[in-house]
Amino acid sequence: MKKLTGLIVFLVVLYIALAIAVPSQGFALNNYNLAERIGQYGVISLGAALVIITGGIDLSIGSVVVLSATACAILLTDKSFGLDPMLALPLVLGGGAVIGLIHGLLITKMNLPPFMVTLCGLFIYRGVARTISGNMSKGIGNQCIELRHFLYEGDIFGLPRFLVIYIILAIIAAIFLHFSVYGRYLYAIGGNEKAAKYSGIATDKYKILSYVLCSTLAAFFGILFLMKNNAVTPSSDGFFLELYAIAGAVLGGCSLRGGEGTVIGITIGTAIMWILPNLTNMWGVPSELEFIVIGSALLLGAIMDEKLRPAAKNA
């Protein structure tokens, strides 16, 4: 609770600073863009968090995003496919799920470390994306206007569509994590896998589930990316995305030791992640310093977290 209060205070302070820094005539637009970004990146933070809560890690998110965006563009627009979105989107999401399933199986059944499995994935999926695209940008041009309109263009009650999508996903995730039996199992596995196993829980199944959900959400992010940017360049897009996702989750209170984290925390963590560069940008801090700011904020968060940790652990 202390942690969450601290995060909220930090977020409010940042937002007030932002309100002061942004000229009033541009404030509404800045808010809109910021909300859109938080909504978009929140999707992968949720995915990363699901895995982190079980005590795992997924480093392949960025590559899954790029592969999914590339595959989606090809499926929708390539002459030999030209699929209807109603068919293409489930295919892309299903592909993400299969990738997650493979990760989960390798980690649970072959006992490989999650770091290793997903690190390999990071390389492989990027390579696959570059191969199937002929190492070129893949765009959707003027096609798929309806789909783009549905997922991206225009606001709903003044809110960017990405944010609305995120809010829906976050509510589902909150019910799943905090109120369902299955979410409870993810926390138990992260807290003490043996305890979960000895309670008769099929721990492997739930660990696999977390990787499937993470990769599926990454694939969904790939679709959103394509809608927003209209095209994807596998050789240069989507680098560091997994790190942003993990950073958002961790900043929001997920412990890399597993077993901790809340949806509201993840949301606030993601918001802080994107307000920070926005703010430094408004202050005229050169953009090359952006990473230093984000890294320092994360480090500060980690130090605070350790300080706030109840001393009971050492007793």
Partner: peptide, 26 residues
């Protein structure tokens, strides 16, 4: 063998939580 990150009730019922269609009776 306890999940120290969860509360007492969660640990007591771990694996056989009172539920209604997968939703915990919280």
């Amino acid at each position: 063998h306890l999940a120290e990150n969860l509360n007492v009730a969660a640990n007591i019922f771990l694996g056989q939580e009172p539920r209604r269609g997968g939703i915990l009776r919280l």
